[in-house]
């Protein structure tokens, strides 16, 4: 199909077909199946048995599920509140020209070498209340008995901290990339106006980074909804159920309690919440459109 007269050739729908089909089979169909399975009772063996809204009625009255939703929301909020300022500041700082920053940056980014599972295992060892370094460091931090993972607040903060440790380097890198693209002219102009360092940061850097902040925040929110490895290895949802966030609860119910139907209802809730977040993000941040309007940045 050569395009002689009618302008540039336009791709037909066939171009999108393989990708769309693949996505349909391995992502959309499973999503629909989650909906169907949530209406069944299925123990993982044999065929699912249709039970109507039974799982949903149970879900609505399940205090553990309510707790999981609160925990997931709290984890998302805490993740954003901890990771954004630190990676923003570190990223802007690392974008600077000094030579020693390059060396320091190399150390900063070492957590990126490790998978979530590896990071969680290392921290579990570090936080071991009898044999880990926490027994030496704990007293300085006001934790004489080093009981971090065994206390509700401690375990939750440990999950927040460990994921921050793991992901801040990535977001630092993103901010570093963003900060490097801020035209120097803007800083020059601000300096002529007599703006100090703080005001330059506030009036030049931050506004210029607003798209980067959006993207990084999107990744953080989406990431926090899917934290699983850290909880599985570090706290196993404990103590009790005090770090059982929604994805982990789904795993426990489905693959330890074998109530796959009920687990699907939990998963469906996660899907609905995540779709809601997706739609909000796409609509209110202009996330989708943003990338096409890069001109002039």
């Amino acid at each position: 199909m050569s395009a002689a007269a009618g302008g540039p050739a336009r791709p037909g729908a066939a171009w999108a077909l393989p990708g769309a089909l693949f996505f349909l089979v391995f992502a959309v169909v499973p999503l629909l199946l989650v909906g169907y399975l949530s209406l069944t009772s299925w123990e993982g063996l044999g065929a699912p048995r249709f039970t109507g809204a039974q799982n949903w009625v149970r879900l609505a009255g399940d205090p553990v599920m309510r707790q999981a939703v609160v925990l997931s929301a709290a984890l998302t909020a805490a993740t954003w509140l901890v990771q954004t300022p630190i990676s923003l500041l570190l990223g802007v700082w690392a974008a600077g020209p000094q030579r020693n920053r390059a060396v320091l940056s190399a150390v900063f980014f070492t957590p990126l070498l490790f998978s979530s599972a590896a990071v969680a295992i290392v921290w579990k060892t570090l936080l071991d209340p009898n044999f880990g370094p926490i027994t030496r460091v704990g007293p300085w931090l006001g934790l004489p008995d080093a009981n971090v993972l065994g206390s509700s607040a401690g375990a939750f903060l440990a999950v927040v901290f460990v994921s921050a440790w793991q992901f801040i380097p990535l977001h630092t890198l993103i901010y570093q990339g963003g900060a490097r693209q801020i035209p120097a002219v803007l800083y020059g102009a601000a300096e002529i106006d007599g703006a100090g360092r703080f005001r330059r940061f506030w009036h030049v850097t931050l506004p210029q980074l607003r798209h980067t902040i959006t993207t990084s925040s999107v990744l953080m929110v989406v990431g926090a909804l899917t934290y699983f490895e850290t909880v599985l290895i570090l706290t196993q949802g404990g103590p009790g159920t005090d770090t059982s966030i929604v994805p982990y609860l789904m795993y426990r119910v489905g693959f330890a309690g074998y109530e796959m139907g009920y687990a699907s209802a939990i998963a469906a809730t996660l899907v609905v919440a995540a779709t809601g977040v997706s739609l909000l993000l796409v609509r209110f941040t202009g996330f989708a459109a943003m990338r096409s309007t890069r001109e002039g940045m």
């Binding site: 009898n130 009981n147 971090v148 993972l149």
Partner: peptide
């Protein structure tokens, strides 16, 4: 059980 048994696996 001491005071940090909850963290021991």
């Amino acid at each position: 059980f001491g005071d940090n048994f909850g963290s021991v696996s």
